[in-house]
Design a protein around this nucleic acid. Structure first.
Length: 739
DNA sequence: CCGATGAAACACTGG
DNA sequence: GTTTCATCGG
């Protein structure tokens, strides 16, 4: 096995660098994952470092899994004992081992965003603060920010009245977390840092164990992560960091690309290696990306070089649709066209956008065209009510102190424990200084002898029944395999009957639960704790499926680290990208620019830049102007696609007004037609057999048949390029060439 | 105590 | 366009 095969000189230098701090600044597509993997292989194979003395931190769980697989393939041996995972996963692992130093037990649960928000709400309520003047989200983000910057609740600076309030909510929020034996995402990092910082013996133990520490996506570390790395690295300083300032896109999560600079200051002996050779994209793509990113200041300038054999490649396509419906239609049409011409396979294509909300119209367009697609976004699945319910049950089994999960499921499905009964339970628990879950368990165990029995009034038997269920499940945790436990819980609460209400949605909900059940089977060996931890720490990126047949829809953030032959970047309008909330802050604007840069540099061959002259925001139409970032791409690298609203001739403003009027009028008609079913269609048939028409993507064709269906004209056309197609007249911008 | 209904508020990115 | 909250009748 040759670890250095197929590496360029800079990559080799990085892989074989000696001990001490190493900083690899790697442009997009420069093979940094390879470098990281081969570096580990080199340490194990050439330097004789045992795997268990290595800690490698990746940005996503998926990256960790891939790295492990690659390593084992390349080394032809197991890397068991090596620690490999995201910061959050590694910290969770450390915290579960060091229970004696921590204010929670090792069966702690990790609260997700919704749990965190509801806990903030409770804290606000406890402190008699008004949610209107102190928005839970904004208070939460202030607390999160503090945590990311190593500020504990006691140290929160009280400059203004608002800060003073936030400090109090922060205090209360932490109390509530501890009462639930829970931590939030930020706590995973902060507690680990505090553990190492306050306990020299623990710190030294990890320092000695981890002889080599490697970190990917270093530009997206925040202060806690950076400080933690420094603590664990200790005196040997064997810290190998790979990153690219230009791809830092998590500022809002506390990430600070200046950690790259800080690294150089803190470790003067650092070896700095630049990887500029790009193996991914054509030179045109790189030139466009470079032109965009060069407008940013405070960065290490890099010159992106394409592989000579790729040539300049195609120019980037720009399409300006009339509105966001047209934008989605263009994307789908173009994808179909690329596939029909054998220029790409469905799986080669990625469609990117700034905000998740933008995916809806795209999905609809794909569905309408009968085309399969893949949507990246864990939230879609794990955010569903039925999934959250089931997870809440399991979390309660693992950790009966979890107040948030208890509140979620105590009366779901309805079992007669209403607001009143829940309030009584709260009061009884508070009075005795225990958690509500403990009260339930004691009711189950002690029955009428329990001191709580009298206090709880009429609903006490219902509460005791629920306690009995919970106690029964808990008795099985270490005995019963996870899938069986899963089934037993659902059976005993009759959950299937609850979600299946006879409707199609009901069946879908049960199907989702079954999907979660399949996942539970994968954790049969590792058990409930590992299952729940993974559910809490899955990232959207972890749901990306490699080698999929269908186009992938994903946010620009989720696209980091991936590559696709064909990339669509949609929503290139001021207010969308760059996003409205970033317009007044130069630092935020710089980050929006980096986000665009990340999107562009995902492309191997083709880039389509798409925007809409009008889009539907909140339910009404707003005119939009082209993203300012488009102006930074040299004109000779762009080509405008036919069929956009500008390309129809005439002045821009005038045409825009006309297009607006047309599409509004049409939508109104469709809406009216849909409402007054089964009345006769109100729209006029525009197309007749024999007409020659032009389609923005499929060019010229001949109309075979046209019908009014559901208030919309459905036209069958034979196109010269792609053959027979059925299109909806209001969506596919068909132009009549000859009657 | 429960479920249905309609109004009102509301969405950036995500471990 | 979706989610959440308040209200009402059963």
């Amino acid at each position: 096995m040759d670890i250095l095969a197929n590496l360029n000189p800079q990559q080799q230098q990085a892989v074989t660098a000696g001990g001490g701090p190493v900083l690899v600044l790697a442009g997009p597509g420069s093979g940094k994952t390879r470098v990281l993997t081969q570096r580990v292989a080199y340490l194990i194979n050439r330097m004789g470092v045992p795997p268990y003395r290595i800690l490698a931190v990746t940005f996503t769980n998926k990256a960790a899994r891939e790295m492990q697989a690659r390593l084992e393939r390349s080394l032809e041996q197991s890397v068991q004992g090596m620690w490999l995972g995201t910061f959050h996963a590694v910290c969770a692992r450390i915290l579960r081992r060091e229970q004696q130093y921590l204010p929670f037990t090792s069966s702690f649960v990790i609260f997700d965003d919704d749990d965190q928000t509801s806990l903030i709400r409770r804290a606000l309520k406890d402190l008699k603060l008004d949610e209107k003047s102190f928005r839970p989200n904004s208070v939460h983000s202030a607390i999160s920010n503090a945590k990311n910057n190593l500020i504990l609740a006691d140290d929160y600076p009280a400059g203004t009245y608002r800060d003073e309030v936030v400090a109090r909510v922060y205090q209360r929020y932490q109390e509530l977390l501890l009462a639930s034996n829970a931590v939030d995402f930020d706590d995973l990092l902060l507690y680990t840092w505090k553990l190492m910082n306050d306990n020299p013996n623990v710190r030294e133990q990890y320092q000695q164990r981890f002889e080599h520490i490697l970190v990917d996506e270093f530009q997206d570390t925040n202060l806690v992560q950076y400080s933690l790395l420094r603590l664990i690295t200790g005196a040997h300083g064997n810290l190998f960091a790979v990153g690219d300032e230009d791809q830092s896109i998590y500022r809002w999560r506390g990430a600070d690309y200046r950690n790259v600079l800080r690294f150089e200051e803190d470790y003067p002996a650092v070896q700095k290696i630049l990887l500029e050779q790009n193996y991914r994209s054509t030179q045109n793509v790189l030139d466009a990306a470079q032109a965009v990113i060069d407008k940013n200041r405070y960065r290490t300038r890099k010159k992106l070089k394409s592989m000579p054999d790729k040539g300049a490649g195609e120019r980037l396509s720009l399409y300006e649709a009339v509105d966001d419906y047209g934008e989605a239609a263009f994307v789908v049409d173009t994808v179909q066209q690329l596939i029909a011409r054998h220029q790409a396979k469905g799986g080669d294509v990625a469609v990117m956008y700034r905000t998740n909300a933008q995916s809806r119209l795209l999905e609809e367009a794909f569905l309408r065209a009968g085309m399969p697609y893949r949507l990246v976004g864990a939230q879609r699945f794990y955010g569903r009510k039925e999934i959250k319910d089931v997870i809440a049950y399991l979390r309660l089994v693992q950790n009966p102190f979890d107040e948030v999960s208890l509140a979620r499921v105590i009366n779901v499905p309805a079992r007669g424990i209403g607001d009143k009964a829940q309030l009584n339970l709260q009061l009884a628990a508070q009075g005795a200084g225990v958690s509500a879950g403990e009260v339930l368990l004691r009711l189950a165990q002690e029955g009428k002898q329990s001191p709580f029995w009298e206090q709880l009034g009429r609903s006490v038997t219902l509460l005791a029944d629920f306690g009995t269920l919970l106690a029964g499940w808990r008795a099985q945790v270490d005995v019963m395999p996870l899938p069986n436990l899963f089934d037993r819980v659902l059976e005993e609460v009759n959950y299937e009957y609850f979600v299946k209400d006879g409707s199609e949605e009901g069946d879908g909900r049960w199907e989702n639960v079954q999907e979660l059940r399949r996942l539970a089977f994968e954790y049969e060996e590792r058990g409930l704790t590992a299952f729940l931890e993974n559910l809490a720490l899955v990232s959207d990126q972890d749901t990306v499926q490699e080698g999929a047949e269908a186009p992938t829809l994903l946010t620009l953030h989720a696209a980091k680290g991936l590559e696709f032959p064909v990339v669509f970047i949609t929503g290139l309008d001021d207010g969308v990208l760059p996003h409205n909330r970033s317009l007044d802050d130069p630092e935020e604007m710089a980050e929006e620019r980096r986000l665009f840069y990340v999107g562009l540099t995902r492309a191997k061959l083709r880039v389509y830049l798409v925007r809409a002259a009008q889009r539907n925001v909140y339910g009404n139409f707003q005119d939009s102007i082209a993203s300012r970032f488009l102006d930074d791409i040299p004109a000779n690298l762009l080509q405008e696609q036919a069929g956009g609203f500008r390309a129809r001739g005439g002045g821009r403003a005038q045409k825009q007004a006309q297009a607006t009027w047309e599409s509004r009028a049409l939508r109104t008609q469709i809406g009216a037609a849909a409402r007054q079913q089964p009345a006769a269609p109100v729209i006029q048939q525009q197309f007749r057999p024999g007409m020659r028409v032009r389609h923005p993507a499929w060019e010229e064709g001949i109309v075979l048949e046209s019908k009014i269906l559901d208030g919309d004209e459905t036209v069958d056309v034979f196109f010269e390029s792609v053959g027979f197609k059925r299109v909806v007249a209001s969506l596919a911008k068909l132009e009549i060439i000859k009657k």
